[in-house]
Nucleic acid binder design. Structure first.
Lengths: 335, 335
DNA sequence: TTGTATGCGTTATCAG
DNA sequence: CTGATAACGCATACAA
């Protein structure tokens, strides 16, 4: 049976109030009292019960990170940074997988499940802004959006400039002399906004150069298998693309493999660029050209925003734009 | 302000007890009462406060998964399966990263930090059994070990037969006619037992064939960069190895890249096999031969064990051996 | 500076 | 089958 505040108080011959003060490091306590309490705490191996503390204060010290799939490298690398950033400001992180399930997302967001369990939520959403707005009516949980939704002033929001990132990636391909350029990653479901923004950037860059897309291939999810399949389809077309912009590095990893399985070479026959800069791409052969997002920046700022909103629920919503940079590697430059 | 049990009781004109019964689905409640309560719950959008419930019952419905690094694919793929397995039996999962920090592990295990926050812990440890024993003295938290520690009857434990897995991987290389076989993944720190077991299996397989290891290279961690570095060192040796057994797939991914950077071919010059069967290896070029661990099996059984121990703290400790299988791919067979 | 007493929202005990 | 009420362990308003 673990020791309680009351046990410590009895042992130290002081009131619970004093023990509480010592434990919280809060008010002014005389040195003599403090020492008595500290001794009693050590002797009893007392540790405050965080659940009781939460019931009293309404704070759990926990943040939720909601992502579609934790085993997608971009999300696990993000999770690592979020966990670290949160630890630095005294929060712990619970990870929720929605598994591309809109209902699960809704459930998490409306708090059907999570009332009072988290102080705030970092959310990398699949659902649209419209749906988010509707959900948010029911819940006042501090919420920061990660990813690329359009900013509408109602939500805190940290993301790269997604249109520009796609534009830069595409411009890189064009600058290399490629002219038959395709993309992979459009979502069959029109309501997702990340793919839409990337498509917009892709088309804008092409238009700047007086080109049109050869083809924009859909991808149900952003996993290797989706990239593989989409690339196969692309390579069967006539004319065959000489460059592919993938909306995620993982799609690109699948596309790389598909090009080789088709007996073609990267980048000689087909140049490939992704987006995310996952570590996997740096070791791939050829190494993957990509657009790097500053994940530690995103994590740090997202945590800072949600904490700010926890402390002041009426804080103005902020849009934070994370830096991005094209990282050319072998899959476009050759070796 | 969210509605409470008391609000519902007032609204429905019944006692809190009855409301609680309805909410918990527990005792016998008359249909008329139940309906009144249900209506009131709906009208007030009432949801039970899990923190208060926890304070009262002592159960949080949360499990902790403690891993060195969540962005290592093996762990993130395991995490995905654990989250899913836990969800099926009504538990949620919080992920803790120890970052190879022994002190952090100790802190988590002795519960310095986590008292009453989790009902149980799934732990993929770096520390030795001796240290674990010492820690466990102080805490009675239900604990299941994931990975490859020797079984000593004191802890629940689910893992593959690690010696055999290493043996099988090595035997595969030998069966292909390789004779100058090296390994990557020994830990400078002797106390880790996973590497030791893998080394034992490696050496046993070689001995069976009348061979001796060319060299067993150390790896500080099991990441791509460590594999890269170790493989570089190996390739500089004379005689150069014609096969490398890596103690993890991620090490193997680094080794693959190192071989190519040295101007050699896989598998013609050097065959490579890893262990874990991460998805990344299936898309690599060449695709990575590996030993597959049944991660869903591990996750399912680990969750089942910890739940069993939560329900009965005195349950006998169990050792569950997960299946493994050598998966030959291009990095040993060629394409 | 320290002590006393109350309540956070729930479940469980004890009556009825 | 249902109602009143006492904990769970802590933090704080209020008093001293």
């Amino acid at each position: 049976m673990p020791a309680t505040l009351r046990d410590v108080a009895e042992r130290a011959q002081v009131s619970m109030r004093t023990v509480s003060n010592v434990v919280s490091g809060y008010a002014h306590v005389s040195d003599r009292m403090r020492q008595k309490v500290l001794d009693a705490i050590a002797e009893l191996d007392y540790r405050p019960n965080p659940v009781a503390r939460t019931l009293r204060t309404g704070r759990t010290g926990m943040l939720a990170l909601v992502v579609p799939e934790i085993d997608v490298p971009y999300f696990s690398e993000l999770a690592r940074d979020v966990i670290n950033a949160a630890a630095e400001v005294g929060y712990r992180v619970m990870i929720d997988q929605t598994g591309h399930d809109h209902d699960r997302e809704r459930e998490l967001l409306t708090g059907a499940d999570r009332t009072m369990l988290f102080d705030g939520v970092l959310f990398s959403p699949l659902v649209t802004r419209g749906e988010l707005l509707a959900m948010n009516e029911r819940s006042s949980m501090p919420l920061v959006l990660l990813g690329e939704h359009e900013f509408d002033g109602r939500f805190d929001h940290v993301a790269i400039d997604n249109v520009q990132a796609a534009r830069d990636a595409t411009a890189h391909l064009i600058g290399l002399g490629r002219r038959r350029i395709a993309a992979i990653g459009a979502q069959p479901d029109e309501q997702y906004s990340t793919p839409q923004q990337r498509t917009a950037g892709f088309e804008a860059a092409l238009a700047d150069a007086g080109l049109a897309p050869i083809r924009i291939e859909a991808a149900a999810h952003y996993r290797r298998a989706d990239g593989y399949q989409a690339a196969r389809a692309l390579l069967d077309r006539d004319p065959r693309p000489d460059a592919i912009f993938c909306y995620s590095d993982l799609l690109a990893m699948g596309a790389l493999r598909a090009v080789f399985d088709a007996g073609l070479r990267v980048p000689e026959d087909v140049a490939i660029i992704g987006i995310d800069d996952i570590e996997e791409g740096r070791y791939a052969r050829p190494s993957l050209s990509t657009v790097s997002l500053d994940t530690p920046f995103i994590a740090r700022n997202a945590v800072a925003r949600v904490v700010a909103r926890i402390d002041d629920p009426d804080a103005e919503a902020a849009e934070i734009v994370a830096p991005h940079a094209v990282i050319p590697r072998e899959s476009t430059l050759g070796s």
